[in-house]
Write a protein that binds this DNA or RNA. Structure first.
Length: 355
DNA sequence: AAGACGGGGAC
DNA sequence: GTCCCAGTCTT
């Protein structure tokens, strides 16, 4: 039996029952695929349901404002996905007459849709013979063929893409693609794969050579850096001052408190002595530490955040245009990043709802 | 070719 | 702590 035939048999008996598998609507499939980029199924599931509920058709998505989309996305991470989705929906609405494309060469033009996602949409919605290559596929193929070429090298990516194309069951492209990803997620797992009852035991090179735990190979990236954030909780009557982050850094376009970043960790005493601080506040302002410092870990940086309450808003020197005071109820509807909304959650009794 | 971009779960 | 997750975009 061929690889594909065995795989499809395995899938028939062990495949997951997932909500986006019951449709061929390219829009719904696109929704699920963007949400699932670098995201575990269990984590993305509730977001998928919320997006389908809120935007059942692409026209609704295109009509929404970005603020609303980001709010729905809040907490999922990689927020450029949400912004690109919004742009893509508007492209479909304005230049494709609201008809979501299913053809690989057209789908891949949409912002946020790369090789993987285009192959997924084209194969799932129209059975176009395009092989998906995601983290699961890299793992399955590197083990099955015993390939030690790093999966994050240019050479490796080409090699695995070619292998995937070779293996694809072109008659059942959609089903086959679902199958190989489920196989990677459920059976050929990163840690403790279920080789004991694997249908590919006889032909899997890594299993035969006892190299399963060393594959796939991935070269290490840069070590993560440390950053030190100082947030100012500025209240005026029953409103709170919030600032929108700019582009070109983590959490682009999301709301947080006004803040200062320093190159090293600093106490409040050291902070008030810095030049930046004096551009924010007039001399004599009183700041009160609030809550506990938070260490927020991202995959590429460690952020150490301290929070200070400022009750004398009149000591605030400059007022950037993107800063604004919001009523407490409004704060709830702003798209905030995780560090801020978990701080708000933990310190409600200290700063709100009465402030 | 290398980095940037989030948050959470498994070990 | 480390690695990985239905990756993409920018430099």
């Amino acid at each position: 039996m061929s690889f594909a035939a065995k795989l499809l048999k395995w899938y028939h008996e062990n495949g997951r029952d997932l909500p986006w598998r019951t449709t061929q609507d390219p829009y719904i499939i696109w929704l699920s695929e963007i949400i699932l980029q670098q995201t575990r199924v269990e984590q993305g599931l509730p977001y998928f349901h919320r997006f389908v509920e809120e935007f059942p058709i692409v026209t609704k998505f295109a009509e929404a404002d970005e603020e609303k989309v980001l709010r729905l996305w809040q907490g999922l991470g990689y927020y450029s996905r949400a912004r690109n989705m919004h742009k893509a929906a508007q492209m479909v609405q304005n230049t494709l007459g609201g008809i979501f494309p299913t053809v690989f060469s057209e789908v891949i033009r949409l912002p946020g849709v790369g090789e993987y996602t285009a192959a997924a949409i084209a194969s799932f919605s129209a059975n176009e013979p395009r092989a998906v290559v995601d983290g699961n596929v890299y793992r399955v193929l590197s083990r099955y063929f015993g390939v030690a070429e790093p999966i994050n090298s240019t050479k490796g990516k080409k090699l695995f893409a070619a292998l995937a194309d070779d293996l694809l069951d072109k008659q059942h492209a959609g089903l086959y693609n679902q199958a190989i990803m489920d196989f990677g997620a459920l059976q050929c797992k990163p840690k403790n794969p279920l080789c004991g009852n694997c249908v590919f035991q006889l032909e899997c090179v890594a299993f035969r050579e006892d190299r399963v735990e060393y594959l796939p190979v991935k070269t290490k990236g840069k070590a993560s850096r440390s950053r030190f954030f100082h947030y100012f909780v500025v209240s005026l009557a029953d409103k709170l001052l919030m600032a929108k982050r700019g582009e070109g850094d983590v959490w682009a376009n999301l709301y947080e408190f006004p803040m200062l970043e320093t190159a090293t960790d600093m106490s409040l005493l050291e902070l008030v002595d810095t030049e930046e601080f004096s551009t924010y506040f007039k001399a004599g302002v009183v700041l009160e530490p609030i809550g506990v410092p938070i260490k927020h870990i991202l995959s590429h940086q460690h952020i150490y955040a301290r929070f200070y309450r400022v009750t004398q808003a009149e000591y605030l020197k400059i007022k950037k245009s993107e800063w604004d005071y919001f009523f407490w109820e409004k704060i709830d509807t702003l798209a905030k990043h995780k560090l801020i909304f978990s701080f708000l959650e933990r310190n409600k009794q200290l700063i709100g709802p009465k402030l």
